[in-house]
Design a binder for these strands. Structure first.
Lengths: 342, 342
DNA sequence: AGGTTTCGCTAAACCGGTTTTCTAAACCGG
DNA sequence: CCGGTTTAGAAAACCGGTTTAGCGAAACCT
């Protein structure tokens, strides 16, 4: 049998007598033969695989509930369309290298900011790409959420409750040189900080630099951030945390110091991951449609892949909203008194 | 320039004058050219990618903290060794088809039981493969945990606290025909149930079939399972749940019925995901080294890939252990009285 | 100066399939 | 019985690289 016949038997059985086709497949089965998947990709010119580009190592990604939820959205949309998923993380520290090697038809890049050291190389790869949580590459479509608006709502909420001494727990910028460090993409922290500032400024509250502490975007990171602030002598009555994990860590730290929540300290998170509603007291937080971001990103990516030439990139901005739960309450009375006397 | 020269410029610059090599790369850059990743795979005969075979859809996988933690382990080990990750889930409902098409060097199969309808085809694919949570394909290496022992310890714990009316909240078998259904792999539920039975039998407690309720392995699944049992008229003083998520769901359902935990109802989970320590009261549960399973699976897979011929498969069994936290306590007094009177 | 290395690059084979083109035999109606 | 059409399968081109073998020119050696 010629290899043509074998190929037909697998992909185009109509071009063979049904008898020969079955015979070929039987022989193939008994020999344990399968068409080499890579070779067929070469001619088919598409892999039916989408890449998820993450600036951090996969081991970090998967331990982050935020990414899990985002991936769920991406997976949902991709699977519906028959695409598989391939995760692209820095290879030997280089994202651009990993991307060059990636056998995918398109890429969803999460948190790829314009000041990433390799952004130019990534840009030049020619692969269809959609950015999530960044709009820094305007030639590519993007999906962002209203970080600033959400943060402002959070800040206005605590200001409205009478809080004046407000600690901002920020996610630290992942050090670009050590890709293994966790953290939230760069621009996000900036936008949220701007939102906090705007929301507090409306009540004439200014956030001094010592009232901003940063840490890894994890429960432990939030815990130690709060502890550092306390040790520094700060006595916040409210905490604005840039991630739910950090908010929960701050809650834990506050409890260990004997503070009650929300009686002594109010705490607001960001993201609204599943966990936020499960802790006690349930966390007041800014909801963002994480899963939906993944779905929309894939949708935009497929548009970009289809109309390869001269298509207008689309820039999507999804809403955030404050969800008030049990972790925030009025500022303690005596503190308001103290302030008044000062 | 010949394409040979271009190839050398990228992979083997020493064979070109350094001047030509840089020139070629510059031109390539300016033209936005990158070597076709698929074509190079074809000659290199390895993809440097490992597959993670999951019997359920990816959208389901990523919403499951258990899988997230397992993937974290796999990713950690794979990345250290320079491998990337490709998730293989049923394609058009067929796992075997997805696997035939997968461009990977080896596969970690999670929860692939011997009675999976396509197991024979998967078996015949010839790809190096390691099984996790199943030992049904003895020719492949495997990693399992002592489910039965852990379940027995959990059962002995509640029996020792004086509980007699014990509800088992089981993970339902995912329907093989509809791969989109969530749930825990088949064999696992059986093993855990055996363990529960053994542990309770030691205290002469028999679990009747009406005391076993099944549901999806999620918080919602656990919640509705407990509600169903209650509506059926069962009044358990303790719950043995086969997953932490279901345990937490049962906690929620019990609370809504006005029951206190652990005063009125004790609850035990399984897995010891992060969340288990964070809920209030903290969940008593059976710890299993989920992350380690992923790491070990990759390690075994690489051995299997290296010594392709005539190697002995290795079968690893990791320990489980009961972690007693706040969700379990002594059986309510009055109920013990009632029993004594009967 | 003549022969041997080394250097810098290219031609050709190969990876393992798919797809297009082609050929030989079977089939068909008149 | 004959020319034209189907049909079954094979041959060849192609996908886009890598790798081996080869070749001419320059450099090296005695």
């Amino acid at each position: 049998m010629s290899k043509t016949a074998v190929s037909f038997a697998f992909n185009n059985p109509d071009r063979l007598s049904s008898e020969t086709a079955t015979r070929i497949r039987e022989v193939a089965d008994s020999l344990g033969y399968r068409p080499h998947p890579v070779a067929r990709l070469l001619t088919q010119r598409q892999t039916m695989t989408l890449g998820v580009l993450t600036p951090q190592a996969l081991a970090v990604i998967f331990s982050n509930p935020f990414f899990a939820l985002f991936s769920e959205g991406v997976a949902h949309a991709a699977e519906d369309l028959g695409y598989e998923l391939h995760f692209i993380s820095p290879r030997n520290g280089s994202l651009a290298l990993a991307m060059r090697r990636a056998t995918v038809d398109g890429v969803v890049a999460i948190g790829l900011s314009g000041d990433h050291p390799e952004v130019e190389q990534i840009r030049g790869s020619g692969l269809p790409m959609v950015l999530v949580d960044s709009e820094d590459l305007p030639e590519h479509s993007s999906v962002v959420v209203d970080d600033e608006g959400g943060a402002r709502a959070a800040a206005e909420h605590v200001a409205g409750l009478g809080h004046r001494d407000i600690l901002v727990v920020a996610v630290e910028r992942p050090d670009a040189s050590s890709a293994r460090e966790p953290g939230t993409p760069d621009g996000v922290a900036d936008r949220r900080l701007r939102g906090y500032r705007a929301g507090l400024a409306a009540s004439d509250i200014d956030v001094g630099p010592e009232w901003i502490v940063a840490g890894r975007a994890s429960i432990d990171g939030g815990e130690s951030a709060f502890q550092r602030a306390w040790a520094f002598g700060l006595r916040p009555s409210a905490v604005l945390a840039m991630s739910d994990a950090m908010a929960i860590g701050s809650m834990r730290a506050a409890r260990q110091l004997g503070l009650r929540i929300p009686d002594d300290v109010s705490i607001v998170g960001f993201d609204d991951i599943d966990l936020a509603a499960l802790v006690d007291p349930a966390l007041t937080t800014v909801h963002q449609p994480i899963r939906q971001k993944g779905i929309d990103a894939v949708r935009l990516l497929l548009t970009e892949m289809e109309l390869r030439a001269g298509n207008q990139p689309e820039h999507l901005r999804l809403e955030t909203r404050l969800i008030v739960r049990g972790s925030t309450g009025p500022a303690p009375r005596e503190r308001q008194e103290v302030r008044r006397l000062e």
